[in-house]
Amino acid sequence: MLEVAVSVPLFAAQDRIPPRGGVGLKAEHYRTIIETLPDIGFFEVHAENYMGAGGPPHRYLAAIRERYKLSLHGVGLSIGADRPLDAEHLQRLKRLIERYRPGLFSEHLAWSSHETWFLNDLLPVPYTTETLARVADHIDQVQNTLGRQMLLENPSTYLAFAESTYSEIDFIAEVVRSTGCGLLLDVNNVYVASTNQQWDPVAYIDAYPLAHVQEIHLAGYTREADDKGRPLLIDTHNRLVDEIVWDLYAHAVGLIGPVPTLIEWDADVPAWSTLKQEADRAEAIMLSTKPEAVRNAAAR
């Protein structure tokens, strides 16, 4: 692909999310948040849960948005699909962004639709020139429609396509260069994919286009085994962040510096206090970890 100069407008400065810990907003915690106003960096919501015109979800979200910064995370655009983007879905997304002014908007490097079917899963793509062109075209369409920059999340994968001609990192770097999008680094996805495909997760993070990372996700996984007895990790988002993922997060923060960090917990949702403790731990790591540039300067 030809290298082009891309300039994509960012979100408004007053809506910018601080480099703190945040949590995914769940209906189970609406009242607790509104009644206690906890000290939390931001909330993130799945866009598709708020695409209706009104009702209690919007009433609660509007009240919370008055007091907190918001990040919007899409799961239904199907950026990697071999089909045009759903124009109606994209317009609903645009209206939602105009209504709530999120500081960040992100989507997945995945596909979840085929012909007229929408699948309840985020499926991987082969890393080929053809896929690269399609993903870049879709991101361009999203950013032009929204008038905002989109963050692309690295996937949680369980296998590799034989036809791939790019490594995952090189593919993502090419997408960024071609579209001007930003990145959401899901550290749990890094560990899940690295275990399943026998990569080195530290080397993955070291080689990642870290200068473009504007948000980090942390979550829990479920450990299983494949038919040969080898470890198989499933990205379930239903438990505490694993200690090894915390270690990888500290390594990433040491390279990037503090960045908005979300605790994802989408199933078996715990008490609010558990989520808050996880977000506080992310903040503590950010505060205690000196970025590499600072360490290098101090050593000279």
Score class of each variant (00 low, 15 high):
Cys181Lys: 02
Ala293His: 10
Leu185Tyr: 10
Leu210Ser: 03
Ile234Glu: 08
Gly52Ile: 07
Thr131Asn: 08
Asp121Trp: 00
Thr129Asp: 11
Ala62Tyr: 01
Phe118Arg: 15
Cys181Gly: 07
Leu185Cys: 08
His212Thr: 02
Tyr100Ala: 07
Ala162Met: 10
Gln149His: 01
Asp39Trp: 07
Asp200His: 07
Gln149Asn: 02
Thr157Pro: 06
Ala271Ile: 01
Arg148Trp: 03
Lys228Ser: 14
Leu90Lys: 04
Ala299Ser: 11
Gln143Ile: 04
Glu66Val: 06
Asn154His: 11
Arg16Ile: 03
Tyr191Gly: 01
Met286Lys: 12
Ser71Tyr: 03
Thr145Leu: 12
Leu233Asp: 11
Pro102Gly: 01
Arg134Thr: 13
Gly55Phe: 09
Ala160Tyr: 09
Glu3Arg: 12
Asp266Leu: 04
Arg65Trp: 03
Ala207Lys: 13
Ile64Glu: 03
Gly74His: 07
Val269Ala: 01
Thr116Leu: 05
Tyr68Gly: 05
Leu93Ile: 15
Ala293Gln: 09
Ala47Thr: 15
Trp199Ser: 09
Asn238His: 15
Val6Lys: 13
Trp246Glu: 06
Thr131Phe: 03
Ala160Asn: 12
Glu35Leu: 14
Leu233Cys: 12
Gly103Gln: 07
Asp121Phe: 03
Glu215His: 05
Ser113Ile: 05
Glu278Ser: 15
Ala299Asn: 06
Thr179Phe: 07
Ala207Met: 02
Ala250Ile: 14
Gln197Ala: 12
Ala160Gln: 14
Ile97Asp: 00
His138Cys: 01
His108Ile: 10
Pro155Glu: 10
Asp82Gly: 00
Thr129His: 09
Arg239Phe: 03
Leu132Ile: 10
Met286Glu: 04
Gly180His: 00
Ile33Ser: 10
Cys181Val: 00
Asp206Lys: 15
Glu168Cys: 02
